[in-house]
Amino acid sequence: MARESVKHRWIMDLVRSYQRPLIAYARARLGDLERAHEVVQSTFQKLWEADRARIEGHVARWLYTVCRNEVTDVLRKEGRMTPVEADRLAAVPHPGDGPDERLQQKERLGRVLALVARLPERQQEVLRLRFQEGFSYREIAQVTGVSQSNVGFLLHTAIRTLRDKLRPVLRPGVEGGEP
Protein backbone atom coordinates (compact mmCIF):
# COMPACT_ATOMS: atom_id res chain seq x y z
CA MET A 1 0.00 0.00 0.00
CA ALA A 2 2.66 2.47 1.03
CA ARG A 3 4.75 1.57 -1.94
CA GLU A 4 1.77 1.87 -4.26
CA SER A 5 1.07 5.25 -2.76
CA VAL A 6 4.60 6.41 -3.44
CA LYS A 7 4.39 5.25 -7.02
CA HIS A 8 1.00 6.81 -7.48
CA ARG A 9 2.29 10.10 -6.22
CA TRP A 10 5.28 9.90 -8.44
CA ILE A 11 3.13 9.23 -11.49
CA MET A 12 0.74 11.97 -10.54
CA ASP A 13 3.58 14.45 -10.22
CA LEU A 14 4.83 13.45 -13.62
CA VAL A 15 1.39 13.74 -15.17
CA ARG A 16 1.11 17.17 -13.70
CA SER A 17 4.39 18.43 -15.08
CA TYR A 18 4.46 16.64 -18.38
CA GLN A 19 0.96 16.21 -19.70
CA ARG A 20 0.69 19.48 -21.55
CA PRO A 21 4.15 19.43 -23.16
CA LEU A 22 3.63 15.84 -24.28
CA ILE A 23 0.18 16.61 -25.65
CA ALA A 24 1.56 19.61 -27.53
CA TYR A 25 4.30 17.41 -28.95
CA ALA A 26 1.95 14.61 -29.99
CA ARG A 27 -0.59 17.02 -31.34
CA ALA A 28 1.95 18.62 -33.62
CA ARG A 29 2.68 15.28 -35.18
CA LEU A 30 -0.80 13.77 -35.19
CA GLY A 31 -2.69 16.88 -36.14
CA ASP A 32 -5.56 16.54 -33.71
CA LEU A 33 -6.07 16.86 -30.02
CA GLU A 34 -8.23 13.81 -29.37
CA ARG A 35 -5.62 11.37 -30.59
CA ALA A 36 -2.86 13.33 -28.90
CA HIS A 37 -4.74 12.83 -25.64
CA GLU A 38 -5.06 9.09 -26.29
CA VAL A 39 -1.39 8.75 -27.02
CA VAL A 40 -0.30 10.72 -23.96
CA GLN A 41 -2.68 8.82 -21.71
CA SER A 42 -1.20 5.52 -22.80
CA THR A 43 2.29 6.96 -22.40
CA PHE A 44 1.59 7.66 -18.72
CA GLN A 45 -0.13 4.29 -18.39
CA LYS A 46 3.19 2.67 -19.19
CA LEU A 47 4.69 4.25 -16.08
CA TRP A 48 2.74 1.82 -13.91
CA GLU A 49 4.68 -1.07 -15.40
CA ALA A 50 7.99 0.78 -15.57
CA ASP A 51 10.84 0.32 -13.12
CA ARG A 52 11.18 3.70 -11.47
CA ALA A 53 14.82 3.21 -10.54
CA ARG A 54 15.72 2.74 -14.18
CA ILE A 55 13.89 5.82 -15.36
CA GLU A 56 14.94 8.18 -12.61
CA GLY A 57 17.36 10.82 -13.80
CA HIS A 58 16.05 10.85 -17.34
CA VAL A 59 12.30 10.81 -16.92
CA ALA A 60 11.69 13.44 -19.57
CA ARG A 61 13.68 11.52 -22.16
CA TRP A 62 11.83 8.33 -21.28
CA LEU A 63 8.41 9.96 -21.58
CA TYR A 64 9.17 11.60 -24.91
CA THR A 65 10.64 8.40 -26.30
CA VAL A 66 7.60 6.35 -25.30
CA CYS A 67 5.26 9.06 -26.54
CA ARG A 68 7.10 9.24 -29.84
CA ASN A 69 6.78 5.48 -30.32
CA GLU A 70 3.07 5.67 -29.55
CA VAL A 71 2.66 8.41 -32.13
CA THR A 72 4.55 6.39 -34.71
CA ASP A 73 2.34 3.38 -34.00
CA VAL A 74 -0.82 5.39 -34.50
CA LEU A 75 0.44 6.85 -37.75
CA ARG A 76 1.54 3.46 -38.96
CA LYS A 77 -1.80 1.85 -38.16
CA GLU A 78 -3.54 4.55 -40.09
CA GLY A 79 -1.26 3.95 -43.00
CA ARG A 80 0.08 7.43 -43.24
CA MET A 81 3.28 8.86 -41.97
CA THR A 82 2.65 12.46 -42.99
CA PRO A 83 0.90 14.41 -40.29
CA VAL A 84 -2.06 16.62 -40.95
CA GLU A 85 -1.30 20.09 -39.69
CA ALA A 86 -4.67 21.67 -40.33
CA ASP A 87 -5.68 21.82 -36.68
CA ARG A 88 -2.51 23.51 -35.61
CA LEU A 89 -2.20 25.83 -38.54
CA ALA A 90 -5.68 27.11 -37.96
CA ALA A 91 -4.69 28.07 -34.47
CA VAL A 92 -1.85 30.37 -35.40
CA PRO A 93 -1.98 33.51 -37.50
CA HIS A 94 -0.24 33.45 -40.84
CA PRO A 95 2.96 35.39 -41.24
CA GLY A 96 2.93 38.47 -43.34
CA ASP A 97 -0.79 39.04 -42.91
CA GLY A 98 -0.65 42.08 -40.73
CA PRO A 99 0.13 45.62 -41.79
CA ASP A 100 3.63 46.94 -41.42
CA GLU A 101 3.17 48.16 -37.90
CA ARG A 102 4.55 47.24 -34.56
CA LEU A 103 3.62 43.68 -33.83
CA GLN A 104 1.97 42.70 -30.66
CA GLN A 105 3.89 40.16 -28.69
CA LYS A 106 1.21 37.53 -29.17
CA GLU A 107 1.24 37.95 -32.90
CA ARG A 108 4.97 37.80 -32.90
CA LEU A 109 4.94 34.48 -31.11
CA GLY A 110 2.15 33.27 -33.38
CA ARG A 111 4.28 34.23 -36.35
CA VAL A 112 7.20 32.24 -35.00
CA LEU A 113 5.06 29.14 -34.64
CA ALA A 114 3.58 29.65 -38.09
CA LEU A 115 7.06 29.87 -39.58
CA VAL A 116 8.07 26.75 -37.70
CA ALA A 117 5.03 24.92 -39.07
CA ARG A 118 6.39 25.42 -42.58
CA LEU A 119 9.70 23.76 -41.87
CA PRO A 120 10.31 20.11 -42.76
CA GLU A 121 8.80 17.81 -40.16
CA ARG A 122 12.08 16.53 -38.78
CA GLN A 123 13.37 20.03 -38.20
CA GLN A 124 10.14 20.90 -36.43
CA GLU A 125 10.48 17.95 -34.12
CA VAL A 126 14.07 18.74 -33.22
CA LEU A 127 13.20 22.40 -32.57
CA ARG A 128 10.37 21.43 -30.28
CA LEU A 129 12.44 18.94 -28.30
CA ARG A 130 15.16 21.50 -27.91
CA PHE A 131 13.14 24.58 -27.06
CA GLN A 132 10.03 23.15 -25.49
CA GLU A 133 11.88 20.67 -23.33
CA GLY A 134 15.45 22.00 -23.27
CA PHE A 135 16.92 18.65 -24.33
CA SER A 136 20.58 18.50 -25.31
CA TYR A 137 21.60 17.27 -28.78
CA ARG A 138 22.43 13.95 -27.20
CA GLU A 139 19.05 13.59 -25.55
CA ILE A 140 17.28 14.54 -28.76
CA ALA A 141 19.31 11.90 -30.56
CA GLN A 142 18.26 9.34 -27.97
CA VAL A 143 14.59 10.23 -28.27
CA THR A 144 14.42 10.38 -32.05
CA GLY A 145 17.02 7.83 -33.08
CA VAL A 146 18.66 10.43 -35.31
CA SER A 147 22.45 10.73 -34.87
CA GLN A 148 23.71 13.45 -32.56
CA SER A 149 25.52 15.26 -35.32
CA ASN A 150 22.47 15.10 -37.50
CA VAL A 151 20.46 16.68 -34.69
CA GLY A 152 22.92 19.57 -34.71
CA PHE A 153 22.59 19.87 -38.47
CA LEU A 154 18.78 19.87 -38.39
CA LEU A 155 18.70 22.43 -35.63
CA HIS A 156 21.23 24.67 -37.34
CA THR A 157 19.33 24.54 -40.63
CA ALA A 158 16.03 25.29 -38.95
CA ILE A 159 17.41 28.20 -36.96
CA ARG A 160 19.16 29.63 -40.02
CA THR A 161 15.86 29.66 -41.90
CA LEU A 162 14.10 31.28 -38.96
CA ARG A 163 16.83 33.88 -38.58
CA ASP A 164 16.41 34.91 -42.20
CA LYS A 165 12.64 35.14 -41.92
CA LEU A 166 12.60 36.83 -38.54
CA ARG A 167 15.49 39.23 -39.03
CA PRO A 168 13.33 42.35 -39.14
CA VAL A 169 11.88 41.65 -35.72
CA LEU A 170 15.12 40.39 -34.26
CA ARG A 171 17.36 43.34 -34.84
CA PRO A 172 17.54 45.40 -31.67
CA GLY A 173 16.10 48.85 -32.00
CA VAL A 174 14.38 48.08 -35.28
CA GLU A 175 10.62 47.82 -35.16
CA GLY A 176 8.26 46.61 -37.78
CA GLY A 177 7.20 43.60 -39.79
CA GLU A 178 8.62 41.92 -42.80
CA PRO A 179 10.12 44.05 -45.55
Partner: peptide, 8 residues
Protein backbone atom coordinates in the same frame (compact mmCIF):
# COMPACT_ATOMS: atom_id res chain seq x y z
CA UNK B 1 15.58 33.16 -32.05
CA UNK B 2 16.16 30.62 -29.29
CA UNK B 3 14.51 32.82 -26.70
CA UNK B 4 11.56 33.53 -29.00
CA UNK B 5 11.11 29.83 -29.66
CA UNK B 6 11.25 28.96 -25.99
CA UNK B 7 8.63 31.56 -25.24
CA UNK B 8 6.43 30.54 -28.15
Amino acid sequence: VAALLSTA
